[in-house]
Amino acid sequence: MRIYCPICGERDSGEFTYGGDATVHRPAMDETDAEAWCQYVYNRENRRGPMLEYWHHTQGCRAWLVLERDTVTHKILSQPRLVGPWADEPKGNPPIDSGSDTGSAERERVSEPVGAE
């Protein structure tokens, strides 16, 4: 399986570690309902078909990604996206030959991920 990392480009799945069901959210720190915590810690839907998953690029940039993948065909159905503090940041521009890029505060939001074919 190949997984597209928004930072590193397409890589072999062996560089990644599965990170769990991405539809599950940790209850708020002040949540006192024991059921809610048990649900979070123990219960997962064993989905057949498309599933939203976290993947961790452990042998690469170590970013966390979220993607939709079919658990039967292994096909990745969505463009993997970063999760975390940088999730909404504009991506870097595709590599250019000259080395004279300067950072500009007004960067154009790039809709195509780096390295997309």
């Binding site: 990170g19 961790h56 452990t58 170590r62 970013a63 966390w64 999760v83 975390g84 503090p85």
Partner: peptide
């Protein structure tokens, strides 16, 4: 390390 990175990316990204 993975556990900490998970917490900082998914649970408490702020």
């Amino acid at each position: 390390l993975t556990h900490l990175e998970h917490l900082l990316s998914i649970v408490w990204p702020e």
